[in-house]
Structures are given as C-alpha cells and as structure tokens.
Nucleic acid binder design. Structure first.
Lengths: 119, 119, 119, 119
DNA sequence: GTGGTCTAGACCACT
DNA sequence: GTGGTCTAGACCACC
C-alpha cells in the first residue's frame, strides 16, 4: 500500500478488496482474513483493519458472524451492483473530465479504440 | 461554485483555472485576478488565493511579475502539455480501473459509444 | 537559530534540515520531529513547520506516512543528488560571479588555496 | 531582466550596472542613462529606475549633478573597493556553503581546478 | 495595488 | 498524536 498518497490507506485497501470480490478472487461467502492478519499483511495498524471491515460492512459488501470472523456477502446481485457502481463512477469521471477539457464524443471513441489496440 | 468537501478548495479552484486556460477562456499572457479579487470571487481567504497562485506558478502554468500580478503562461506548448497530462491521467484511470473490474476493451468501446449517443 | 531577515524563515530551516540530512546528522528513513515539535524548537508557528515539511516532500527529500509523521527519504541516491545539486549551485554562482568581476581561473585557484590555508 | 525571480528587479539591475563599472564597460565619471532611458531599456517602471540611482548614490557608486544627470564615481579606489566587496561575498558564500556540505579544503581546490580546465 | 510571509487559532481525517 | 486545510488578520517589499 502507498502510504504517501492523498487517498486514505483504508480506502485503498477497501478498493483492493472490492476488486478481489468483483473479479472472483474472493468468492461469495468466503471468509476474509482476521483484522490482525490483515494488519500484518498490509503492515498497517489493527485499528485501520477494523475500520476497513466496519466500513465494508456498512456498505453491505461483507457481514460479520460474531466469534467467527468477517465474510464476503453471499448476494451475487449485491456484488454485481458494486461492480456497476464502480464502473459508473469511472465512466462519469472520464466523460465529464474529458468533455471539460474540450474533447468531443468522437475523440473519446477514437482515443479508447487506440488505447485498446496498443494493449 | 460549491465545493466538494473531500477535495481541498485550493485544488478545486486550481483545476477550474486550469480548465479555463486549456479551453481558452483565459488566454496566454492574460492577467489573472489579484489574490484579493480571487478571494472575493470564491469567498475564500486571501491566503488561500495566494496558495493557489503559488502552486500554479510552481507548475509553470502561471508566472508572477513582482508587484504587478499573476499571468497565464505565454507558452502555448506548456498549455498543450497540461491538457495532454490531464487527459492522459483521465484515460489511464478509466482504462486501468475498468480493466481491473473485468471489462474488456470491446466493452469499453461500446460503453463510450453508448454514452456519446445519450448526450 | 537566528534568522536572516531577507530569506524566508521556512527556507532557512529547510536548508538547515537538508544540511543535516546530507551530513548524516539525520539518517535515511529517520523520523523528523512532528510539526508541533519543530514549531517549538525554532519558535515558529505550526503552520510554518507544516509548510516546511510539505515543501520538502515536494522535493522528495522526505515522505509522509499519514497519521504517523514525516520521514527522511530512504533513497541514498536522492540524498547524494541533493548534495550534488547544492554543490553545483554554489560552484556555478562562485565561478560565474567571479568571472564576471574579471577574475581569471588562475586567480580563483590561488584565492581558494589562500582561503584554505587560513582556516 | 528576469521578473520571475526572488531577487528584486532593482537589485538585479544594480548588480548589472556594478559589473559594467567594475569591468570598465562604464568608465569613471561617465554619464549613466536618464531614469526614463533606463526604464525604457529594461522595460521597467520609472519609479524603479529612480530607486536604482538612489540606492547606488547611497552606496557612493554614482553621484548626481542636478539638471545634468547621474554619473559613475570618479574614485578608482571606490571602484576597486566594490570589486573587492563583491568578490569577498562570493568567496565567503562559496567556502562556507561547501564546508557545510562536508567538502574539505582539498576538495574545493581540486573542484576549482577541474572547473577551470573545462572552460 | 501586487504577491509573499508569518502568527494565531481552529477543525479535520487518518493512524 | 500526525499532517493538512482554512480563516482572520497583520506586515512587508516591490512596482
């Protein structure tokens, strides 16, 4: 994790975990590492791991079984919704930003096409 | 202008000014409002305006004539470079973010096409 | 520390800290005093300490771990580069300045030799 | 002149003029341009030219004949003294600065020798 | 009038 | 406790 960054560490890790869930690296219902394990894995303070799970639970991405740990939500539709929300944010930021810079819709399409070919 | 709380006000205004320069609303060599005027315009503290101009000068977007004021850079290539840098950041964030979410290049193209038609 | 009036205090302290880093009084990776401690040490305002650390971070002399503090860069090559940059500036100012005053290279050498013997 | 510089414009021009006097480009007793001419030559405000001559007169580098203009001092020893003062400042800044960076006297001599050979 | 610096004091999110 | 941001108000040199 990049401590030297304007994005809070807990946010950076939440995004990592969300991506792992969306791409299937973490399956629905799978147990997540304990707060202590997470703290060690990312060399962060256990308080910060706690905050990560609290926030993810608030967003209903995970749920907690007392005494057992934290688990990925079992709702596939919830996971799909997260993917859509994250995608929508990315799309909006991109289109809005480029438009403000004076790029037309045609330019956007050709830029993305070119980007795709290069990879 | 109403400010997004999570991004510092001075950053938001810098981005506004950058966009104004890129889109030609502010011409190369043009004088910017004085720190005091800017403070009134955006209802911010003059210190904050000062910080804005200092940061922009550091990025060579503007230059200062002592005792006279702050001016937009006269280098058209610098302005072009800023536009390209900002666009490249937007493109990278978008493509990288979407790819991490599992979207293919073809999907990106069709998403952008669809977005364009809606507007 | 007493401050030279014509140079901003924050600049003078930055130069002090740079020298401490270059001469090894501050080691790579070492934690710097907190902004509040620095403010007390030099009897300056905490705002001014903050500015010092922000500027040094911009120059990549230090880095910040959010919520933990400010640390000397761990890159030895960066430190070496800072030393070389500062030395190069001093050398250029000296040679350029003396040449403009009509001193020849031979005179420079003998002046420096004489200076060395006196100390 | 470089307006975008932490050194005040009037200081920059005074230094230019001092160098011209020291190197003989301006002879003892020679008439300097009028404040208006100076203002045009350097595209500065006439107030600034006035300040330049006032400051140089205070340092006894120039003198004024009412209604006739401003002239370079006729004292050769004064000119020699200015040269020595400027040189002494340059030498001190250099030796003090390099010593603080950890350079030894031997290193200074070899650096200056190397610089001389390159030119 | 212009930007630059500094103090004082406050609030904030993050670890 | 850590740095980051902001306001308020002051003073300064420079043009």
């Amino acid at each position: 994790m990049d401590f030297n960054n304007s994005i809070p560490i807990y946010m950076q890790i939440i995004n990592e975990l969300k991506k792992d869930i969306i791409t299937g690296k973490l399956s629905p219902g799978e147990k997540l590492p304990s707060t202590r394990e997470l703290a060690i894995k990312y060399s962060i303070n256990p308080n910060t791991s706690g905050r990560i799970y609290k926030e993810m639970e608030r967003e209903e991405i995970t749920f907690t079984k007392r005494g057992l740990g934290t688990f990925v939500t079992e709702s596939e539709s919830k996971i799909e919704q997260i993917r859509n929300d994250m995608a929508k944010d990315l799309i909006n930021d991109f289109v809005k930003g480029m438009t403000e810079l004076g790029y037309t819709n045609e330019m956007l399409i050709s830029i993305i096409k070119k980007e795709s070919e290069e990879k």
